[in-house]
């Protein structure tokens, strides 16, 4: 009995250590982001902002281009969500509901493009955009982000739709619904939470994306692109505040998404 308790305690210790491995770096960037300009250069450093100050954050947010870039990031993410949902969700529904010829091939294509190197896609697309004269705008960048998000959207929506029993849809049809009505009245309301989580994932994907963003934009930067392009010349307080500003939404998003992590990634990975 005693041995059992000991192993329980050790398991907890392990779990807490792992949690600290994740949390301590986040804490430290928060400390830096909420120190004064002077505090950032203090050495040795304190583990609490001393004094606590919003100066660094407001300096960052007040810097030229930061807020417009952040706004652009949001716009790009929203366009990405809209396009990838409009294009991807029907395909996901088809995968979940229909047994059609070529279904397995289609699924394989989707699955194998899910980890497709963005580096490879970005450079030829950038060249093509310049030739077409559509480089450096939010819509073009969103299209590129869609390419990243689409395999993910298709697989996630397909697992979400597959989670709504076929019977419910058929029941609705025997009760007088057309296939479209059955979808709108029964499938969609039930799939909504899962679809919302998928949407958040797409948002995070686009909000975080660096390589394509910095390659495809020059004046109309998104926030990560702006930060990367200025990495060499930006002062420390700007950097830390920027890092924290990029990171903060992700912690909140994860709070909403975590329930779906496994229905999303579990099924996707198989």
């Amino acid at each position: 009995m005693k041995g059992l308790k000991l192993s329980r305690v050790l398991t907890y210790v392990g779990a807490v250590l792992m949690a600290l491995w994740i949390l301590v770096p986040i804490w430290l960037i928060a400390v830096s982001a909420f120190s004064t300009r002077q505090g950032i250069f203090d050495f040795p450093k304190a583990l609490l902002p001393n004094p606590f100050s919003a100066d660094t954050m407001s300096f960052f947010l007040g810097a030229t281009n930061v807020l417009p870039s952040a706004g652009r990031s949001v716009v790009v993410a929203i366009i990405t969500i809209v396009i990838s949902s409009v294009i991807g969700a029907p395909a996901g529904y088809a995968l979940a509901r229909f047994n059609f010829r070529g279904r397995d091939v289609f699924r394989l294509v989707i699955v194998s493009t899910r980890a497709f190197p963005i580096v490879i896609l970005s450079i030829p697309i950038a060249v093509a955009y310049i030739q077409l004269g559509i480089n450096d705008n939010v819509f073009s960048l969103a299209l590129m982000h869609c390419a990243l998000a689409l395999p993910f959207t298709v697989l996630v929506t397909s697992s979400v739709f597959a989670g709504v029993p076929r019977d419910l849809e058929e029941a609705a049809e025997t009760l007088g619904c057309s296939p479209l009505q059955a979808f709108m009245r029964v499938v969609l309301p039930l799939a909504l939470p899962g679809l919302a989580a998928a949407t958040l994932f797409t948002f995070v994907l686009s909000w975080n994306e660096v390589f394509a963003s910095v390659i495809l934009t020059s004046r109309n930067r998104t926030l990560p692109a702006l930060l990367v392009a200025q990495l060499d010349e930006s002062p420390l307080n700007y950097k830390y505040a920027g890092g924290f500003f990029l990171l903060a939404p992700s912690m909140v998003f994860m709070l909403f998404i975590r329930k779906y992590l496994f229905t999303l990634w579990g099924r996707v990975s198989r």
Binding site: A15, M18, A19, I22, L23, P25, I26, L28, I29, S32, F41, D42, F43, K45, V204, W207, N208, E209, V210, P224, L227, V228, L236, K239, Y240, G242, G243, F244, L246, L247, P249, S250, M251, F253, M254, L255, I257, R258, L261
Partner: peptide, 27 residues
């Protein structure tokens, strides 16, 4: 614990880099 372990899933490459720069840099 699961939530905590999963947080980095939503953290951008760039932010993660800055987080660790904050640790490893000279001061």
């Amino acid at each position: 614990f699961l939530y905590i372990y999963a947080i980095p899933l939503a953290v951008s490459e760039l932010a993660a880099g800055i987080v660790w720069f904050n640790i490893f840099t000279n001061n």
